[in-house]
């Protein structure tokens, strides 16, 4: 565990001494802020109209009308930005030759992988945590429910963790950071829309495609549903990504 933290600390230092982490966090916050502002403006206009009518007035729901679309937008931004956070993790070690230091040190490959994973998770936490400041406005001028919001954030975190694990896997495949980012981006997008194919699929395939796609599971979480199926899905996806990374690194050395 100590070794994992040593590697994580080193990665965090690299993230924050180079501009990578700042740029990713700032751009993420600017985009999320922009989406939040626009959704909130739309919600205000909508709420004004709905207040005219007794029935519609009872239907106004800030969780559903603001947070649900906001979480969906945030997930897309994460899909675009997290590959940039993970692309260098193993590619760079390979390119500049520092992998020789890591693999000749008395720490295991698992500890190295986990250390890098933890560092990226912490940057993800910072990204998500800072967007929490936006909710000050929601709570100051409205009364959203807390639990579904937290559930949505949990969903974003789990989704992000899975993205990061997949990104780490692609980073271990190549010493070129751009290639690593593009492969990650392509894979994530494919996973995202995989359930589109379920429309034309039949039988068990339909269920499989739906299960494997990010979308279904994420929708549940933004709607405030906390289902262990979804949690298990993301956790196992993250685990699978890290496991593949381990296999790639080991097999490359044994070849």
């Amino acid at each position: 565990m100590k070794n994992v933290w040593v590697v994580a600390k080193k990665e965090l230092r690299t993230y924050f001494t180079s501009p990578i982490a700042y740029v990713v966090i700032v751009v993420f916050l600017v985009l999320v802020g922009f989406f939040y502002y626009n959704i909130l403006m739309w919600f205000n206009a909508q709420a004004m109209q709905m207040a005219q009518n007794q029935y519609y007035y009872s239907q106004i729901n800030i969780n559903q009308m603001v947070y649900q679309p906001l979480f969906n937008n945030m997930s897309i931004i994460l899909l675009l930005m997290l590959p940039l956070l993970t692309m260098r993790l193993f590619s760079e070690e390979k390119k500049i030759g520092t992998e020789e230091l890591l693999y000749t040190s008395p720490i295991s490959v698992n500890q190295i992988i986990l250390g890098k994973f933890v560092a990226s998770l912490l940057v993800l936490l910072a990204m998500l945590g800072l967007t929490g400041l936006l909710s000050i406005f929601s709570f100051a001028f409205g009364n959203p429910e807390v639990a579904p919001i937290l559930n949505g954030y949990l969903g974003l975190f789990l989704l992000g963790a899975a993205f990061i694990a997949i990104g780490i896997f692609f980073s271990s495949l190549t010493e070129n950071q751009i290639v690593s980012a593009i492969l990650t981006f392509g894979a994530l997008l494919l996973f995202w829309v995989l359930n589109w194919a379920s429309n034309s699929a039949a039988g068990a395939w339909k269920d499989i495609l739906n299960y494997v796609s990010f979308l279904q599971h994420f929708d549940n979480m933004t709607q405030g549903i906390l289902d262990t199926t979804d949690v298990v899905y993301y956790v196992s996806l993250a685990f699978f990504g890290l496991f593949l990374t381990h296999s790639v690194i080991q097999s490359r050395r044994w070849r």
């Binding site: 690299t14 500049i96 520092t98 020789e100 000749t104 008395p106």
Partner: peptide, 17 residues
Amino acid sequence: KTILGYLPEVLPLYPDM
């Protein structure tokens, strides 16, 4: 590995540290 020090041919340095 604990009792071994290694200088590889390509220096394993992190330029940003």
